[in-house]
Design a protein around this nucleic acid. Structure first.
Lengths: 207, 207
DNA sequence: ATTTAGTTTAACCATATAGTTAACTTTTGT
DNA sequence: ACAAAAGTTAACTATATGGTTAAACTAAAT
């Protein structure tokens, strides 16, 4: 992943470096010089290819969200029984976040500082993909197949279980005294029990 | 709360302003001038009372965490049956976070950028308070009274359900098209069902 | 070979920002 | 009443940072 074989284009190197730096430091914390250093190019190239810090950031932000969230949300739209969908969603979502563990916090943090940016990008996009899923839950709820909660609450419960550990990772690592390996193992355990557990939580079945 | 009656001391006004600015903008995003403006004092006073931005930040960080987290964690230590404890914890925790809705993201974000800061402050402090709770879960698990998961996982599940909505608030507000009032209502609904729901999730009882 | 467009570099610039200084005012202690 | 201490202010400094510029270099097209 980071074994730069001097192959990729300058523009790509800049983007990759910017993604790393922005995701770990945020917009304000990132330094153009640091991005240039990490990309191993002259700082002027940042402006040559992306005009400004803001523009570069938006590119990173856009691709981080727009390429990832729809992948996830589209899963929710497939025609499938609720329990199977929950299991698949759990697996797919954890797989994606494991591969991009910094993105949830990045998105949530930048969203807090500039909520309009997300609105600009996704808003309806995501909303429209989530809505069918909420409807499916609603139907099942009316048939008495789910726990008796509003679909929005159920959805938030699901996302909570999947995302929170990645957001709180540094805190959890301190509290439970886990190194990187231990944390990976912790997530692996979650991957194992989460499909059944979500079904139980949502559809109110004993494990 | 914000009806400044020109009463509090300069030092306190600085701290309050700094808390607001740091919590909404983070360490990097905060500007000393903005803090001074919000406190309605000369910028030099910041340095007079707190020497440096870093020092001021640490004061805010320390009091935000050290005064809040133990309040919560100590609840976990009381002698009480697990189900009752879960209900009380849910109520108390949501009450505290409702009163300080910016703190979870503030802590988690700054933790990511500087994990050693938390270590310095809490580390053992929190760990020691959580441990007895984990032990209690472990005992109940051995008696077959809980869902069959490691206590750490159960703890994370609980925290996920309680904290995540506050972290993801801006995202949720966009996805579900909620204004402030609607979000408060959303949280109120969670407060209502969460005690029973946590007991069900942890102790594997039907609702 | 020469032109041309694209790419890269080093040296600059303007500005914002954390921090300092020194003069001034108010409060407190005697 | 006086002096010392604490508090406050405006002006300033040093530096970091995003951004610009113009010249140099490269490679492809003619």
């Amino acid at each position: 992943m980071s074994s730069e074989t001097e192959s990729s284009s300058t523009e790509q190197k800049i983007f990759d470096a910017a993604r790393d730096v922005f995701q770990s430091k945020g917009l304000e914390g990132a330094r153009m010089q640091e991005i240039a250093d990490k990309a191993d190019i002259n700082k002027s190239m940042l402006h040559y290819y992306y005009r400004s810090k803001e523009k570069l950031f938006e590119k990173v932000y856009e691709l981080s969200i727009i390429k990832l969230m729809p992948q996830v949300a589209s899963l929710l739209n497939e025609e499938m029984p609720l329990d199977m969908k929950l299991r698949k969603f759990s697996a797919k979502y954890l797989e994606l976040v494991k591969a991009n563990p910094d993105i949830p916090l990045f998105v949530i943090h930048e969203m807090n500082k500039n909520p309009s940016r997300l609105k600009k990008f996704i808003a309806k996009e995501i909303g429209k993909r989530v809505q069918p899923f909420l409807n499916q839950i609603k139907e099942e709820r009316e048939k008495g197949n789910t726990v008796n909660l509003p679909p929005e609450q159920i959805f938030v419960n699901i996302m909570s279980m999947l995302v929170f550990p990645f957001l709180a990772r540094p805190v959890l690592q301190v509290i439970f005294d886990m190194d990187e390996k231990a944390f990976s193992e912790f997530i692996a355990v979650r991957e194992a029990f989460m499909p059944d557990y979500l079904v139980s939580m949502v559809m109110n079945k004993e494990l």
